[in-house]
Nucleic acid binder design. Structure first.
Lengths: 216, 216
DNA sequence: TAGATTGTTAATCGATTAACAATC
DNA sequence: TAGATTGTTAATCGATTAACAATC
Protein backbone atom coordinates (compact mmCIF):
# COMPACT_ATOMS: atom_id res chain seq x y z
CA UNK A 1 0.00 0.00 0.00
CA UNK A 2 1.60 3.21 -1.16
CA UNK A 3 1.39 6.16 1.13
CA UNK A 4 2.92 9.28 -0.34
CA UNK A 5 2.75 11.06 2.99
CA UNK A 6 5.44 8.71 4.24
CA UNK A 7 7.92 9.72 1.58
CA UNK A 8 10.30 12.37 2.83
CA UNK A 9 11.73 15.00 0.51
CA UNK A 10 15.18 13.46 0.66
CA UNK A 11 13.78 10.20 -0.70
CA UNK A 12 11.82 11.99 -3.42
CA UNK A 13 14.97 13.74 -4.56
CA UNK A 14 16.52 10.32 -5.12
CA UNK A 15 13.59 8.88 -7.09
CA UNK A 16 14.49 10.39 -10.47
CA UNK A 17 17.94 8.87 -10.30
CA UNK A 18 16.57 5.48 -9.30
CA UNK A 19 14.13 5.79 -12.16
CA UNK A 20 16.79 6.54 -14.75
CA UNK A 21 19.00 3.80 -13.41
CA UNK A 22 16.28 1.18 -13.49
CA UNK A 23 15.40 2.29 -16.99
CA UNK A 24 18.90 1.58 -18.22
CA UNK A 25 18.95 -1.77 -16.41
CA UNK A 26 15.64 -2.64 -18.04
CA UNK A 27 16.92 -1.60 -21.47
CA UNK A 28 19.87 -3.91 -20.95
CA UNK A 29 17.52 -6.79 -20.26
CA UNK A 30 18.32 -7.09 -16.57
CA UNK A 31 15.27 -8.45 -14.78
CA UNK A 32 16.45 -8.92 -11.24
CA UNK A 33 18.68 -6.89 -8.94
CA UNK A 34 19.56 -6.98 -5.26
CA UNK A 35 19.87 -3.90 -3.10
CA UNK A 36 23.54 -4.73 -2.67
CA UNK A 37 24.23 -4.87 -6.39
CA UNK A 38 22.25 -1.70 -7.06
CA UNK A 39 24.06 0.05 -4.23
CA UNK A 40 27.41 -0.83 -5.78
CA UNK A 41 26.37 0.49 -9.16
CA UNK A 42 24.83 3.70 -7.85
CA UNK A 43 27.29 4.52 -5.11
CA UNK A 44 24.73 4.24 -2.32
CA UNK A 45 24.36 1.84 0.60
CA UNK A 46 22.17 -1.26 0.31
CA UNK A 47 20.53 -0.23 3.53
CA UNK A 48 19.44 3.10 2.12
CA UNK A 49 18.07 1.53 -1.03
CA UNK A 50 15.95 -0.95 0.91
CA UNK A 51 14.81 1.84 3.20
CA UNK A 52 13.89 4.04 0.25
CA UNK A 53 12.04 1.36 -1.72
CA UNK A 54 10.18 0.36 1.38
CA UNK A 55 8.68 3.86 1.67
CA UNK A 56 6.32 3.12 -1.15
CA UNK A 57 5.37 -0.40 -0.24
CA UNK A 58 7.32 -3.62 0.12
CA UNK A 59 8.41 -4.57 -3.32
CA UNK A 60 11.29 -6.94 -3.16
CA UNK A 61 11.29 -10.61 -2.46
CA UNK A 62 13.43 -12.04 0.30
CA UNK A 63 16.21 -14.22 -1.00
CA UNK A 64 15.70 -12.86 -4.52
CA UNK A 65 15.91 -9.09 -4.69
CA UNK A 66 13.87 -6.68 -6.79
CA UNK A 67 12.18 -7.18 -10.12
CA UNK A 68 13.56 -4.42 -12.35
CA UNK A 69 10.65 -3.75 -14.73
CA UNK A 70 8.15 -3.92 -11.89
CA UNK A 71 10.15 -1.49 -9.75
CA UNK A 72 10.71 0.79 -12.73
CA UNK A 73 6.98 0.97 -13.39
CA UNK A 74 6.25 1.53 -9.73
CA UNK A 75 8.62 4.50 -9.45
CA UNK A 76 7.28 5.88 -12.73
CA UNK A 77 3.82 5.71 -11.21
CA UNK A 78 4.94 7.62 -8.12
CA UNK A 79 6.64 10.21 -10.31
CA UNK A 80 3.43 10.40 -12.37
CA UNK A 81 5.32 10.16 -15.65
CA UNK A 82 2.15 9.30 -17.53
CA UNK A 83 0.13 12.30 -16.42
CA UNK A 84 -0.11 15.32 -18.71
CA UNK A 85 0.73 18.69 -17.24
CA UNK A 86 -0.14 21.65 -19.46
CA UNK A 87 2.92 23.84 -19.54
CA UNK A 88 4.03 27.17 -20.96
CA UNK A 89 7.54 28.42 -21.54
CA UNK A 90 8.50 32.06 -21.00
CA UNK A 91 11.76 33.11 -22.61
CA UNK A 92 12.74 31.76 -26.03
CA UNK A 93 16.48 32.42 -25.87
CA UNK A 94 19.15 29.73 -25.91
CA UNK A 95 18.21 28.50 -22.46
CA UNK A 96 14.53 28.36 -23.33
CA UNK A 97 15.27 26.41 -26.48
CA UNK A 98 17.55 24.00 -24.64
CA UNK A 99 14.94 23.43 -21.99
CA UNK A 100 12.26 22.76 -24.59
CA UNK A 101 14.14 19.65 -25.64
CA UNK A 102 13.98 18.38 -22.07
CA UNK A 103 10.25 19.05 -21.85
CA UNK A 104 9.73 16.99 -24.99
CA UNK A 105 11.97 14.14 -23.92
CA UNK A 106 10.75 10.64 -23.23
CA UNK A 107 9.08 10.19 -19.83
CA UNK A 108 8.32 13.85 -19.49
CA UNK A 109 4.84 14.37 -18.12
CA UNK A 110 4.90 17.98 -19.26
CA UNK A 111 3.01 19.01 -22.35
CA UNK A 112 4.20 22.28 -23.83
CA UNK A 113 1.27 24.30 -25.14
CA UNK A 114 2.69 27.80 -25.53
CA UNK A 115 5.93 29.78 -25.76
CA UNK A 116 6.28 33.50 -25.01
CA UNK A 117 9.00 36.13 -25.24
CA UNK A 118 9.07 39.89 -24.90
CA UNK A 119 11.59 40.20 -27.74
CA UNK A 120 9.53 40.86 -30.88
CA UNK A 121 12.37 39.50 -33.03
CA UNK A 122 11.72 35.99 -31.68
CA UNK A 123 7.96 36.14 -32.12
CA UNK A 124 6.60 34.01 -34.91
CA UNK A 125 9.56 31.63 -34.79
CA UNK A 126 8.60 28.00 -34.41
CA UNK A 127 10.22 25.87 -31.70
CA UNK A 128 9.35 22.19 -31.91
CA UNK A 129 6.21 23.10 -33.80
CA UNK A 130 5.07 25.74 -31.33
CA UNK A 131 5.05 29.43 -32.30
CA UNK A 132 6.76 31.98 -30.09
CA UNK A 133 4.14 34.54 -29.08
CA UNK A 134 4.61 38.04 -27.73
CA UNK A 135 4.48 38.11 -23.95
CA UNK A 136 1.54 40.54 -24.20
CA UNK A 137 -0.67 37.65 -25.24
CA UNK A 138 0.15 35.50 -22.23
CA UNK A 139 -2.78 36.66 -20.09
CA UNK A 140 -5.43 35.85 -22.67
CA UNK A 141 -3.66 32.61 -23.55
CA UNK A 142 -3.78 31.48 -19.93
CA UNK A 143 -7.42 32.46 -19.56
CA UNK A 144 -8.23 30.34 -22.61
CA UNK A 145 -5.92 27.37 -22.00
CA UNK A 146 -5.34 27.09 -18.23
CA UNK A 147 -1.72 25.95 -18.08
CA UNK A 148 -0.75 24.27 -14.80
CA UNK A 149 2.98 24.83 -15.03
CA UNK A 150 5.28 27.57 -16.27
CA UNK A 151 8.94 27.31 -17.20
CA UNK A 152 10.70 30.62 -16.66
CA UNK A 153 13.87 31.33 -18.63
CA UNK A 154 13.95 35.12 -18.37
CA UNK A 155 16.05 37.62 -16.40
CA UNK A 156 15.24 37.97 -12.69
CA UNK A 157 14.22 41.59 -13.17
CA UNK A 158 11.16 40.60 -15.17
CA UNK A 159 10.18 37.73 -12.90
CA UNK A 160 8.20 39.54 -10.25
CA UNK A 161 5.65 40.98 -12.60
CA UNK A 162 5.40 37.76 -14.57
CA UNK A 163 4.95 35.43 -11.61
CA UNK A 164 2.39 37.71 -9.94
CA UNK A 165 0.36 37.54 -13.14
CA UNK A 166 0.75 33.79 -13.71
CA UNK A 167 -0.11 32.88 -10.13
CA UNK A 168 -3.21 35.08 -10.39
CA UNK A 169 -4.11 33.24 -13.60
CA UNK A 170 -3.94 29.87 -11.87
CA UNK A 171 -0.45 28.53 -12.62
CA UNK A 172 0.35 26.03 -9.88
CA UNK A 173 3.99 25.11 -10.41
CA UNK A 174 7.16 26.63 -11.81
CA UNK A 175 10.36 25.29 -13.27
CA UNK A 176 12.42 28.35 -12.50
CA UNK A 177 15.76 29.11 -14.15
CA UNK A 178 16.06 32.64 -12.83
CA UNK A 179 17.47 33.73 -9.49
CA UNK A 180 14.16 35.29 -8.49
CA UNK A 181 12.76 33.58 -5.42
CA UNK A 182 9.25 32.59 -6.48
CA UNK A 183 8.62 30.54 -3.34
CA UNK A 184 9.25 33.53 -1.06
CA UNK A 185 6.81 35.69 -3.02
CA UNK A 186 4.20 32.96 -3.54
CA UNK A 187 4.40 30.27 -0.87
CA UNK A 188 1.23 28.67 -2.23
CA UNK A 189 2.81 27.45 -5.48
CA UNK A 190 5.35 24.71 -6.14
CA UNK A 191 8.77 25.66 -7.39
CA UNK A 192 11.63 23.60 -8.70
CA UNK A 193 14.64 25.84 -9.08
CA UNK A 194 17.60 25.41 -11.40
CA UNK A 195 20.01 28.00 -10.11
CA UNK A 196 22.86 27.93 -12.60
CA UNK A 197 24.60 30.88 -10.93
CA UNK A 198 24.68 29.12 -7.57
CA UNK A 199 25.78 25.87 -9.15
CA UNK A 200 28.71 27.62 -10.81
CA UNK A 201 29.70 29.43 -7.61
CA UNK A 202 29.66 26.13 -5.75
CA UNK A 203 31.88 24.56 -8.39
CA UNK A 204 34.28 27.48 -8.07
CA UNK A 205 34.54 26.90 -4.37
CA UNK A 206 35.08 23.16 -4.77
CA UNK A 207 37.64 23.57 -7.53
CA UNK A 208 39.68 26.04 -5.53
CA UNK A 209 39.31 24.05 -2.32
CA UNK A 210 40.88 21.07 -4.07
CA UNK A 211 43.89 23.20 -4.96
CA UNK A 212 44.28 24.22 -1.33
CA UNK A 213 44.31 20.57 -0.34
CA UNK A 214 46.99 19.81 -2.87
CA UNK A 215 49.08 22.68 -1.59
CA UNK A 216 49.03 21.36 1.96
CA UNK B 1 40.59 32.79 11.39
CA UNK B 2 38.94 30.95 8.54
CA UNK B 3 39.13 27.21 8.55
CA UNK B 4 37.58 25.68 5.47
CA UNK B 5 37.75 22.21 6.98
CA UNK B 6 35.03 23.26 9.40
CA UNK B 7 32.56 24.15 6.69
CA UNK B 8 30.16 21.32 6.00
CA UNK B 9 28.74 20.71 2.56
CA UNK B 10 25.29 21.85 3.63
CA UNK B 11 26.70 25.23 4.61
CA UNK B 12 28.68 25.51 1.38
CA UNK B 13 25.53 24.89 -0.61
CA UNK B 14 23.99 27.92 1.07
CA UNK B 15 26.95 30.24 0.44
CA UNK B 16 26.06 31.20 -3.14
CA UNK B 17 22.59 32.30 -2.07
CA UNK B 18 23.98 34.32 0.84
CA UNK B 19 26.43 35.82 -1.57
CA UNK B 20 23.78 36.88 -4.09
CA UNK B 21 21.57 38.20 -1.34
CA UNK B 22 24.30 40.28 0.25
CA UNK B 23 25.20 41.59 -3.17
CA UNK B 24 21.71 42.93 -3.70
CA UNK B 25 21.65 44.43 -0.20
CA UNK B 26 24.97 46.11 -0.92
CA UNK B 27 23.72 47.43 -4.25
CA UNK B 28 20.77 48.92 -2.41
CA UNK B 29 23.11 50.75 -0.08
CA UNK B 30 22.31 48.67 2.99
CA UNK B 31 25.35 48.62 5.25
CA UNK B 32 24.14 46.76 8.31
CA UNK B 33 21.91 43.73 8.82
CA UNK B 34 21.02 41.51 11.74
CA UNK B 35 20.68 37.76 11.52
CA UNK B 36 17.02 38.16 12.36
CA UNK B 37 16.34 40.61 9.55
CA UNK B 38 18.31 38.54 7.04
CA UNK B 39 16.48 35.41 8.15
CA UNK B 40 13.14 37.09 7.49
CA UNK B 41 14.18 38.16 4.03
CA UNK B 42 15.71 34.83 3.05
CA UNK B 43 13.22 32.49 4.68
CA UNK B 44 15.77 30.95 7.04
CA UNK B 45 16.14 31.00 10.82
CA UNK B 46 18.33 33.58 12.53
CA UNK B 47 19.97 30.75 14.40
CA UNK B 48 21.04 29.03 11.23
CA UNK B 49 22.45 32.21 9.76
CA UNK B 50 24.57 32.92 12.83
CA UNK B 51 25.68 29.30 12.88
CA UNK B 52 26.61 29.43 9.20
CA UNK B 53 28.47 32.74 9.33
CA UNK B 54 30.32 31.59 12.39
CA UNK B 55 31.83 28.67 10.45
CA UNK B 56 34.19 31.00 8.70
CA UNK B 57 35.15 33.18 11.62
CA UNK B 58 33.19 35.47 13.93
CA UNK B 59 32.14 38.36 11.83
CA UNK B 60 29.26 40.15 13.38
CA UNK B 61 29.28 42.56 16.25
CA UNK B 62 27.13 41.96 19.29
CA UNK B 63 24.36 44.46 19.61
CA UNK B 64 24.88 45.62 16.04
CA UNK B 65 24.66 42.79 13.53
CA UNK B 66 26.70 42.21 10.40
CA UNK B 67 28.41 44.68 8.11
CA UNK B 68 27.02 43.94 4.65
CA UNK B 69 29.96 44.89 2.37
CA UNK B 70 32.43 43.22 4.70
CA UNK B 71 30.42 40.00 4.85
CA UNK B 72 29.86 40.07 1.10
CA UNK B 73 33.60 40.33 0.48
CA UNK B 74 34.31 37.61 2.99
CA UNK B 75 31.93 35.14 1.35
CA UNK B 76 33.28 36.10 -2.05
CA UNK B 77 36.73 35.27 -0.77
CA UNK B 78 35.59 31.85 0.45
CA UNK B 79 33.91 31.20 -2.89
CA UNK B 80 37.13 32.34 -4.57
CA UNK B 81 35.26 34.57 -7.01
CA UNK B 82 38.44 36.42 -7.91
CA UNK B 83 40.43 33.38 -8.92
CA UNK B 84 40.69 32.45 -12.57
CA UNK B 85 39.84 28.89 -13.52
CA UNK B 86 40.73 27.95 -17.10
CA UNK B 87 37.68 26.30 -18.54
CA UNK B 88 36.59 24.56 -21.73
CA UNK B 89 33.08 23.96 -22.99
CA UNK B 90 32.12 20.79 -24.83
CA UNK B 91 28.87 20.98 -26.76
CA UNK B 92 27.92 24.16 -28.61
CA UNK B 93 24.17 23.56 -28.92
CA UNK B 94 21.49 25.70 -27.29
CA UNK B 95 22.41 24.52 -23.82
CA UNK B 96 26.11 25.14 -24.39
CA UNK B 97 25.39 28.63 -25.65
CA UNK B 98 23.08 29.40 -22.72
CA UNK B 99 25.68 28.17 -20.26
CA UNK B 100 28.37 30.30 -21.87
CA UNK B 101 26.50 33.40 -20.77
CA UNK B 102 26.62 32.17 -17.17
CA UNK B 103 30.34 31.49 -17.40
CA UNK B 104 30.88 35.06 -18.57
CA UNK B 105 28.64 36.64 -15.97
CA UNK B 106 29.85 38.96 -13.25
CA UNK B 107 31.48 37.18 -10.31
CA UNK B 108 32.26 34.09 -12.31
CA UNK B 109 35.74 32.84 -11.56
CA UNK B 110 35.68 30.72 -14.69
CA UNK B 111 37.59 31.84 -17.74
CA UNK B 112 36.43 30.19 -20.93
CA UNK B 113 39.37 29.40 -23.20
CA UNK B 114 37.95 26.93 -25.70
CA UNK B 115 34.72 25.52 -27.13
CA UNK B 116 34.37 22.14 -28.83
CA UNK B 117 31.67 20.23 -30.68
CA UNK B 118 31.58 17.08 -32.76
CA UNK B 119 29.10 18.63 -35.18
CA UNK B 120 31.16 20.03 -38.03
CA UNK B 121 28.34 22.46 -38.88
CA UNK B 122 28.98 24.36 -35.65
CA UNK B 123 32.73 24.50 -36.05
CA UNK B 124 34.13 27.91 -36.92
CA UNK B 125 31.14 29.71 -35.37
CA UNK B 126 32.08 32.31 -32.81
CA UNK B 127 30.45 32.29 -29.37
CA UNK B 128 31.33 35.30 -27.23
CA UNK B 129 34.47 35.75 -29.28
CA UNK B 130 35.60 32.15 -28.96
CA UNK B 131 35.64 29.87 -32.02
CA UNK B 132 33.92 26.49 -31.89
CA UNK B 133 36.53 23.86 -32.67
CA UNK B 134 36.05 20.28 -33.79
CA UNK B 135 36.18 17.86 -30.87
CA UNK B 136 39.11 16.10 -32.57
CA UNK B 137 41.33 19.02 -31.58
CA UNK B 138 40.48 18.82 -27.89
CA UNK B 139 43.39 16.59 -26.90
CA UNK B 140 46.05 18.80 -28.39
CA UNK B 141 44.31 21.90 -27.09
CA UNK B 142 44.40 20.54 -23.54
CA UNK B 143 48.03 19.50 -23.84
CA UNK B 144 48.86 23.07 -24.90
CA UNK B 145 46.54 25.02 -22.60
CA UNK B 146 45.94 22.90 -19.47
CA UNK B 147 42.32 23.71 -18.67
CA UNK B 148 41.31 23.01 -15.06
CA UNK B 149 37.59 22.72 -15.61
CA UNK B 150 35.30 21.34 -18.31
CA UNK B 151 31.64 22.14 -18.90
CA UNK B 152 29.89 19.22 -20.53
CA UNK B 153 26.74 19.89 -22.56
CA UNK B 154 26.65 16.77 -24.72
CA UNK B 155 24.55 13.59 -24.73
CA UNK B 156 25.34 11.03 -22.04
CA UNK B 157 26.36 8.47 -24.65
CA UNK B 158 29.42 10.48 -25.59
CA UNK B 159 30.38 11.31 -22.03
CA UNK B 160 32.35 8.24 -21.06
CA UNK B 161 34.91 8.55 -23.79
CA UNK B 162 35.17 12.31 -23.32
CA UNK B 163 35.62 12.30 -19.54
CA UNK B 164 38.15 9.47 -19.63
CA UNK B 165 40.20 11.58 -22.03
CA UNK B 166 39.82 14.86 -20.15
CA UNK B 167 40.67 13.35 -16.77
CA UNK B 168 43.74 11.78 -18.32
CA UNK B 169 44.68 15.20 -19.68
CA UNK B 170 44.49 16.77 -16.23
CA UNK B 171 41.02 18.32 -16.02
CA UNK B 172 40.19 18.58 -12.31
CA UNK B 173 36.55 19.63 -12.19
CA UNK B 174 33.39 19.32 -14.24
CA UNK B 175 30.18 21.28 -14.59
CA UNK B 176 28.13 18.41 -15.90
CA UNK B 177 24.80 18.85 -17.70
CA UNK B 178 24.51 15.25 -18.86
CA UNK B 179 23.09 12.34 -16.93
CA UNK B 180 26.39 10.50 -17.10
CA UNK B 181 27.76 9.91 -13.62
CA UNK B 182 31.28 11.33 -13.80
CA UNK B 183 31.88 11.00 -10.06
CA UNK B 184 31.25 7.24 -10.14
CA UNK B 185 33.70 6.76 -13.01
CA UNK B 186 36.30 9.21 -11.71
CA UNK B 187 36.08 9.65 -7.93
CA UNK B 188 39.26 11.75 -7.98
CA UNK B 189 37.69 14.72 -9.78
CA UNK B 190 35.15 17.27 -8.60
CA UNK B 191 31.74 17.33 -10.20
CA UNK B 192 28.88 19.77 -9.97
CA UNK B 193 25.88 18.25 -11.68
CA UNK B 194 22.94 20.04 -13.25
CA UNK B 195 20.54 17.21 -13.88
CA UNK B 196 17.69 18.81 -15.80
CA UNK B 197 15.96 15.48 -16.34
CA UNK B 198 15.86 14.77 -12.62
CA UNK B 199 14.73 18.30 -11.84
CA UNK B 200 11.83 17.97 -14.25
CA UNK B 201 10.84 14.56 -12.88
CA UNK B 202 10.85 15.99 -9.37
CA UNK B 203 8.65 18.87 -10.49
CA UNK B 204 6.26 16.39 -12.08
CA UNK B 205 5.97 14.53 -8.82
CA UNK B 206 5.43 17.70 -6.80
CA UNK B 207 2.90 19.11 -9.23
CA UNK B 208 0.85 15.94 -9.21
CA UNK B 209 1.20 15.49 -5.46
CA UNK B 210 -0.37 18.93 -5.00
CA UNK B 211 -3.38 17.81 -7.04
CA UNK B 212 -3.79 14.76 -4.84
CA UNK B 213 -3.84 17.01 -1.79
CA UNK B 214 -6.50 19.21 -3.33
CA UNK B 215 -8.62 16.18 -4.15
CA UNK B 216 -8.60 14.98 -0.56
C1' DT C 1 16.55 -27.44 3.82
C1' DA C 2 20.26 -23.92 3.28
C1' DG C 3 21.47 -19.64 1.32
C1' DA C 4 20.25 -15.24 0.06
C1' DT C 5 18.16 -11.09 0.60
C1' DT C 6 14.42 -8.35 2.08
C1' DG C 7 11.64 -5.55 5.60
C1' DT C 8 11.98 -3.20 9.63
C1' DT C 9 13.61 -1.70 13.99
C1' DA C 10 17.29 0.31 16.66
C1' DA C 11 21.66 2.90 16.74
C1' DT C 12 24.30 6.39 14.88
C1' DC C 13 25.36 10.40 12.76
C1' DG C 14 24.81 15.05 11.29
C1' DA C 15 22.23 19.17 10.66
C1' DT C 16 19.02 22.48 12.48
C1' DT C 17 17.05 24.99 16.17
C1' DA C 18 16.79 26.88 20.86
C1' DA C 19 18.80 29.10 24.55
C1' DC C 20 21.54 32.19 26.85
C1' DA C 21 25.93 34.15 28.39
C1' DA C 22 29.09 37.42 26.38
C1' DT C 23 29.63 41.89 24.79
C1' DC C 24 29.15 45.75 21.71
C1' DT D 1 23.96 51.83 31.67
C1' DA D 2 20.26 49.40 28.99
C1' DG D 3 19.07 47.30 24.80
C1' DA D 4 20.30 44.65 21.07
C1' DT D 5 22.41 41.06 18.91
C1' DT D 6 26.10 37.99 18.34
C1' DG D 7 28.87 33.58 19.34
C1' DT D 8 28.50 29.22 21.05
C1' DT D 9 26.84 25.30 23.48
C1' DA D 10 23.15 22.11 24.32
C1' DA D 11 18.77 20.07 22.76
C1' DT D 12 16.12 18.50 19.12
C1' DC D 13 15.08 16.71 14.96
C1' DG D 14 15.61 13.98 10.90
C1' DA D 15 18.23 11.15 7.84
C1' DT D 16 21.45 7.42 7.21
C1' DT D 17 23.40 3.18 8.52
C1' DA D 18 23.66 -1.22 11.02
C1' DA D 19 21.69 -5.29 12.48
C1' DC D 20 18.97 -9.14 12.33
C1' DA D 21 14.61 -11.64 12.31
C1' DA D 22 11.44 -12.89 8.70
C1' DT D 23 10.92 -15.43 4.65
C1' DC D 24 11.42 -16.51 -0.17
Amino acid sequence: MTNKDNISLSVIKRLPRYYRFLQSLKENGIVRISSKELANRMGLTASQIRHDFNCFGGFGQQGYGYNVPELYDKIGEILCVDKEIKTILVGAGNLGKAVTNKIFSKNSSFKLIGIFDKNEAFCGNMIKGIPVRNIDYIENFCIDNHPTCAVTCIPSNDMRELTDLLVKLGVKSFWNFSNYDIAMAHPEVLVENVHLTDSLLTLGYLTNASFDEEAE
